[in-house]
Write a protein that binds this DNA or RNA. Structure first.
Ligand code: MN
Ligand code: MN
Ligand code: ZN
Ligand code: ZN
Lengths: 157, 157
DNA sequence: CAGCTAAATGACAAGAATTGTTAGGTGGTA
DNA sequence: TACCACCTAACAATTCTTGTCATTTAGCTG
């Protein structure tokens, strides 16, 4: 995520105004490098500094950033939309146990669309590795005893 | 998607009851092989046969099928959830022009999670190729005047 | 086949996430 | 400083999905 100063300049270049609310959102996002917050999470972070900012303002600013390509909208899984503060090309690990998500940088050079779809022009490839992180790994002892309980209610991005 | 008879047996095995509404939903899904319908789309198909089925019943049955692993819940962007009638391992082409989605079967054997994430146990890999389909291609030479015509039956959303 | 019971149905309402509306306020420029 | 397009925030509206509950029904048992 770019610095507050850079984002300020980019907003002004676009004819968008830079308000204390927006700069506070910029600051919150800049402090979240590597995270995938929901709008609500960004709002919560912002409220610590400016208690009167509305959730609507947060949504509006996040959507502006997405339109500018300075933030990615993650549309995976269910529940509230997540935003990706990292706009470099990368992929994700999604833990089905705790719902956390990590960035990974995998080599996609060997990944090709089959010939049967040759008339489709690919501009981006989204990859999500789903599974279980170290803390959520099934314990081998419990594994022998019982069948795994149903997945947690919220296995999200 | 399995046949109405197979799904009927699987529901009974699970202690779930099989009602005319549910069998109608089974039929609708079975006729949608290769598609990625929303709950609303399934509901619309069902209403042609049984006009009194509620959307709630459709959601309930689709969720049961997902819990049984006979239907996949897709998170392709925002908007209403899509369900994947094809539960074989496969990937998707998503056209950013018309919003349609196609199944593809790509070779993922060369796709590995980086070593830095070695203690993450991957159970599934979701791949979405995003771009533009032939009808939505910006290429001015091809299909210049053509309306985006319906995709082949096996390649619907 | 009749009776039992857990499950399903559907009308309705509620919940969760996001966006529209609008009246007043403000940033950036001249 | 004055202007004005843009922004803010309270509120309402929309969209998608699930909860509640009275009634009905599927599947089982005898
Ligand atoms: Mn990321
Ligand atoms: Mn599919
Ligand atoms: Zn985990
Ligand atoms: Zn298209």
């Amino acid at each position: 995520m770019k610095s507050v100063e850079e984002l300020t300049d980019l907003f002004r270049l676009r004819g968008l105004k830079v308000t204390p609310q927006r700069q506070c959102i910029f600051r919150a996002l800049h402090a979240m490098e590597g995270a995938h917050p929901s709008a609500e999470a960004v709002h919560a972070a912002v409220l610590g500094e400016l208690p009167m900012v509305s959730l609507k303002t947060v949504y509006q600013t996040l959507n502006d950033l997405v339109a500018m390509g300075e933030l990615r909208h993650l549309g995976l899984g269910s529940g509230p939309a997540r935003f990706d503060v990292n706009i470099d090309t990368h992929q994700h690990l999604a833990c089905e146990g705790c719902g956390r998500t990590w960035d990974v940088y995998a080599d996609l050079s060997a990944l090709h669309v089959p010939d049967s779809a040759m008339d489709f022009a690919v501009s981006a490839t989204d990859v999500v590795f789903r599974g279980r992180c170290a803390s959520c790994a099934p314990d081998p002892d419990e594994d022998l005893q019982k069948e795994p309980v149903g997945a947690p209610a919220s296995a999200r991005i």
